[in-house]
């Protein structure tokens, strides 16, 4: 069984210990996905598997067999950027840019989670529709660290895109 990566079928590596992150970067040269901590603490390696955000550093590539993986390269391009990428530029949602691919992938999935009504730890009423607030976005994006401290711009960018989608 192959792994579908940004629409292209790729064979799983023979060595089953290879992480999805290393498959993407070292073998397929999709270097948009970043290596941060490589231990599940920073979110820089966030990609989408079947549309859900996961950490590619803690996912074995072989576990993605038969699944569809979307990386930042599949989400948007220089010619056709994702609305979140445009909003990150508009709101200075980065400084060095290293965490940005993971932030954008995480945010794309997060907005779908909110639209599906999935609550968070800060949601007051677990059974009511979820509102897109600054507090909700901060909690839901807490798995993506930005050492430059661009979190305020990141949250502004996400809130703008969320407002645009709701309109």
């Amino acid at each position: 069984m192959a792994i579908r990566i940004n629409g292209t079928e790729v064979a799983a590596p023979d060595d089953v210990r290879v992480s999805l992150l290393d498959l993407l970067r070292e073998r397929l040269h999709l270097t948009g996905t970043k290596v941060g901590c490589n231990q599940g603490a920073c979110g820089a390696c966030t990609v989408l598997v079947d549309g859900e955000r996961v950490l590619s550093c803690l996912t074995l590539a072989v576990q993605a067999e038969g699944r569809s993986v979307t990386t930042i390269e599949g989400l948007g391009s220089a010619d056709s950027p994702h609305p979140l990428q445009l909003a990150f530029i508009e709101h200075d949602g980065f400084q060095c840019g290293y965490c940005t691919p993971g932030q954008v992938c995480a945010a794309a999935a997060m907005l779908r989670e909110i639209e599906a009504g999935v609550p968070s730890y800060v949601t007051a009423d677990l059974t009511a529709p979820v509102l897109v607030t600054r507090e909700e976005v901060r909690e839901r994006m807490s798995g993506n660290l930005c050492r430059c401290g661009a979190h305020n711009g990141i949250v502004d960018a996400i809130l703008e895109v969320a407002a645009g989608r709701a309109a």
Partner: peptide, 19 residues
Amino acid sequence: YPMLARAILAGASAQIRNM
């Protein structure tokens, strides 16, 4: 079971809870 939903949501990050 709000205590169970909230306990899970208090753990790790959304990415890790998905996995």
